[in-house]
Measured scan of single mutants.
Amino acid sequence: IINNLKLIREKKKISQSELAALLEVSRQTINGIEKNKYNPSLQLALKIAYYLNTPLEDIFQW
């Protein structure tokens, strides 16, 4: 999986903590996703895309 979450999140000036709060997950979860240590569920990936107002395929590429 190619993961552009960190790049997109930083472009939008959103911290890991802010995104985690919006998604109701821990900051460690966001960190793990960004470091490719954790693959989000489809539901979480869709929520990330929604809150970042970015197409899912721009954030994650399988």
Rank of each mutant, 00 (worst) to 15 (best):
E57P: 05
L52W: 01
L22T: 06
I59S: 00
K6Q: 11
Y50T: 07
A49G: 06
A45W: 09
R9E: 02
I8T: 06
N36T: 06
G32H: 14
K12M: 11
K35I: 11
K47A: 11
V25A: 03
A20M: 03
L5P: 01
A21V: 09
L19F: 08
T29A: 10
Q16D: 05
Q61D: 12
L46I: 13
A49W: 02
I30Q: 01
K13I: 05
S41F: 04
L44K: 02
K37Q: 14
I1F: 15
E24H: 15
S15A: 08
L19M: 05
S17P: 06
L44F: 08
Y50C: 11
Q61E: 13
I30Y: 05
N36G: 15
R27E: 15
L5V: 09
K13M: 15
L56E: 02
K37N: 11
E18D: 11
L22N: 08
K11Y: 09
E10C: 08
L56P: 05
N4M: 06
V25I: 12
W62F: 13
N39C: 15
Q61P: 15
L52F: 07
D58A: 08
D58Y: 09
I14V: 10
N36I: 04
I1S: 13
K47L: 08
T29K: 08
K6Y: 05
R27M: 13
V25N: 02
I2P: 09
N3G: 03
A45N: 01
L19D: 00
E34N: 02
I2Y: 10
S41C: 06
L22S: 09
G32N: 15
L56D: 00
I8E: 05
K37R: 13
I2F: 12
N3E: 02
E34H: 02
K6W: 04
K11I: 11
R9L: 05
K11N: 11
Q28D: 15
P40C: 08
E34P: 01
I33Q: 00
P55R: 08
P55Y: 04
K37H: 14
L5Y: 00
L22A: 15
I2L: 14
S15I: 04
A20Q: 03
Y50M: 12
K6R: 14
L19Y: 01
L19V: 02
E24N: 14
A21I: 12
Y38T: 10
A49E: 03
E24P: 06
E10M: 12
E18I: 06
E57W: 09
R27D: 10
L23T: 11
I59F: 03
I8C: 07
Y50D: 07
A21C: 11
N31Y: 10
L22M: 14
I48Y: 01
N4C: 08
A20V: 03
I1T: 10
F60T: 00
R9V: 02
N53R: 09
I59W: 02
R27N: 07
S26Y: 03
K13L: 10
F60S: 00
Q43T: 12
G32C: 15
N3D: 02
L52N: 00
L7C: 13
E34I: 03
Y51A: 14
A45F: 04
V25Q: 03
Y38W: 13
N36H: 12
T54C: 08
P55D: 08
W62P: 09
N31C: 08
L42T: 05
L5W: 00
Y51S: 06
I1E: 07
E18S: 10
T54Q: 05
E10F: 06
E10G: 06
E34F: 02
V25G: 02
Q61I: 12
Q16C: 03
L19K: 01
A49S: 11
S15C: 04
N53K: 11
R9T: 03
Y50V: 07
A20F: 01
L22W: 13
F60K: 00
D58W: 08
S15R: 07
L42F: 14
L22Q: 12
S15E: 05
K6M: 09
R27Q: 15
I48A: 04
R9N: 01
Q43D: 14
S17A: 14
L46S: 07
P40M: 06
Q43C: 13
L7Q: 14
Y51W: 08
K47F: 04
S17R: 10
I1V: 12
N4T: 05
T54D: 02
S26G: 08
F60I: 02
R27T: 15
E18N: 09
L23E: 00
Y38E: 09
E57F: 07
T29Y: 15
L44V: 06
K37I: 13
E24A: 14
R9K: 01
I1C: 15
V25T: 06
N39G: 11
S26R: 08
S26P: 15
E34K: 02
E57V: 08
N3I: 05
F60R: 00
E10H: 08
I30F: 03
I30S: 00
V25P: 01
K11L: 11
E57R: 10
S41D: 10
Q16Y: 04
N53M: 08
I1K: 09
P55L: 05
A21T: 13
K35N: 15
A20C: 04
Y38K: 12
K6A: 11
I30T: 01
E57A: 11
S15D: 06
N3T: 06
W62T: 11
Q28G: 14
L52M: 08
A20P: 00
A21L: 12
N53T: 06
L5K: 01
S26Q: 06
Y51I: 15
K13E: 10
L46H: 09
L56K: 02
Q61G: 15
A49F: 02
Q43I: 13
I14S: 03
I1Y: 14
F60H: 01
P40E: 01
L22R: 09
L46T: 09
S17W: 11
G32I: 11
K12C: 10
V25H: 02
L22V: 11
L5G: 01
K37C: 13
K12W: 04
K37M: 15
K12A: 14
E24Y: 07
K13A: 10
N4Q: 07
K47H: 05
K11D: 09
V25S: 03
N39I: 15
E57I: 08
N3V: 07
K47S: 06
P55G: 06
E34V: 03
I8M: 06
N39T: 15
Q61L: 07
K6L: 07
K6F: 06
S41M: 05
F60V: 00
L52Q: 00
N39Q: 15
I30W: 02
A21K: 14
G32F: 13
N3Q: 05
L56C: 07
E18A: 12
Q28Y: 09
L5N: 02
T29Q: 08
S15M: 04
L44Y: 02
G32L: 15
K35H: 13
N4R: 11
I8W: 06
Y50P: 00
D58C: 11
Y51C: 09
N3P: 03
E24L: 10
N36Y: 09
Q43E: 12
K13Q: 13
E24Q: 14
L42N: 05
S41I: 05
L46D: 04
Q61F: 12
E18K: 13
F60M: 02
W62E: 08
A49I: 02
L52Y: 01
L19W: 03
E18Q: 12
I48Q: 00
I30N: 00
P55A: 07
Y50E: 09
N39M: 14
I48C: 04
Q28W: 10
E24G: 14
L42C: 14
Y51T: 10
I59Q: 00
I1D: 06
I30P: 01
R27I: 15
K6H: 09
Y50R: 08
W62R: 09
A49K: 01
S26M: 04
A45I: 05
Q16E: 06
S15P: 05
I2R: 11
I8R: 03
K35M: 14
Y51G: 04
K47R: 10
A20N: 01
S17K: 13
I33P: 01
P40Q: 01
K6D: 03
P55H: 05
P40T: 05
Y38Q: 09
N31R: 13
S17M: 12
A45P: 00
K6E: 10
P55T: 08
I14D: 00
E24I: 06
Q16L: 12
K13P: 04
E57H: 12
N53D: 14
Q43R: 13
Q16N: 03
L46R: 10
I30L: 13
L22I: 12
N4S: 06
A45D: 00
I14M: 15
K47E: 07
E57M: 09
L23W: 01
A45G: 06
A49R: 02
A21D: 13
A21W: 07
T54H: 05
K13C: 12
K6T: 08
P55C: 07
E18T: 12
E10P: 02
Q28R: 13
N3K: 02
A20S: 08
T29F: 14
I8K: 03
N36K: 11
K12P: 01
P55E: 06
I59M: 05
Q16S: 06
G32D: 15
